[in-house]
């Protein structure tokens, strides 16, 4: 009987939540949080100048929607450009680190150390060196986005089954063919994980760079509304930044879904 009970407990632990439950539970939790927040503001428990209510934030968002959209486009452009360059730089670094052991030994510690420097600390230096234009913003985004891509790719390349490489060697495969057929596809899954992190870093990096100077972008908008003590608008821009980051992450998911059809087959088999 005891064995049966433990078996039952074991199987219930393994049961995956249904799709509906996965959606409903977080939505209810978020709604409850917003309700408490709204109540705290409406009852005067928290003064409006310290924390605007969710409804006030939404009202500000719609009131300033045109302006926020313009600033969002600037931020998105900077993020996309920086992320694009960051991915290319990350890819090149990963290739060199995989191909040349000396390059790996030389740059792996340097890269790790570089990531311990806070973005907010180097942003003013970049503005000092490159001015208020596009360059410092893009450089900052490149610096923050290339690392996750490099690390994930290097790790993916190194996780390749050596037997797979030996097999291709017995087929007479060249170094390029081994990369094309074995290493790159094996690293693809980890690349997308890195890309997902980089996508969020890209938006945040752009906003931080805009805080320090510029004429357009969500960071510039945030600086302006902060100076006028419009914290409801400040929160509205935070909402937009989150939405943009989430949208970019979803875009990476979509890209993964389209470029890795075999993962869908594996997923459906596991589900069976």
């Amino acid at each position: 009987m005891k064995a049966l009970e433990s078996e039952h407990i074991g199987s219930s632990h393994k049961r995956q939540p249904t799709r509906l439950r996965r959606i409903v539970v977080p939505v209810v939790a978020l709604a409850a949080l917003l309700a408490v927040w709204e109540l705290a503001c409406d009852t005067g428990l928290v003064p409006a100048f310290m924390l605007p209510s969710p409804l006030a934030v939404v009202r500000s968002l719609f009131a300033d929607l045109g302006l926020i959209a313009q600033h969002s486009i600037t931020t998105l452009e900077e993020a996309a450009l920086g992320l694009g360059i960051g991915v290319v730089v990350g890819f090149v670094f990963a290739l060199l680190m995989d191909r040349f052991e000396t390059f790996y030994l030389a740059f792996e510690p340097l890269m790790t150390v570089s990531q311990t420097i806070p973005t907010i600390a180097i942003a003013p230096l970049l503005v000092l060196w490159f001015g208020y234009g596009l360059a410092p913003k893009v450089i900052l985004i490149v610096l923050t986005t290339f690392f996750p891509v490099t690390v994930s790719l290097v790790s993916g390349f190194r996780s390749v089954d050596t037997d797979m490489i030996d097999l291709l060697r017995t087929m007479g495969a060249s170094r390029w063919q081994i990369f094309r057929y074995v290493k790159l596809p094996a690293a693809a899954e980890q690349l997308f994980s890195g890309l997902r992190i980089s996508a969020t870093y890209a938006i945040v990096g752009a906003v931080i760079a805009e805080w320090l100077g510029g004429t357009s972008g969500l960071g510039v908008y945030m600086t302006r509304v902060r100076k006028s003590f419009s914290y409801d608008k400040m929160f509205a821009s935070i909402l937009v930044i989150s939405a943009l980051s989430l949208a970019l992450m979803r875009l990476v998911d979509l890209l993964e879904h389209v470029t890795m059809p075999w993962k869908r087959a594996e997923g459906s088999k596991n589900h069976d």
Binding site: D163, D166, T170, E266
Partner: peptide, 28 residues
Amino acid sequence: GHVSYMLQKDLLLPHLTIMDNACLPLVI
């Protein structure tokens, strides 16, 4: 490259269909 080698694991490439896995030596 002169003799065929097959290991304990099937080592099929997960991102290629069975047809493309079979064709791999010819494509290479």
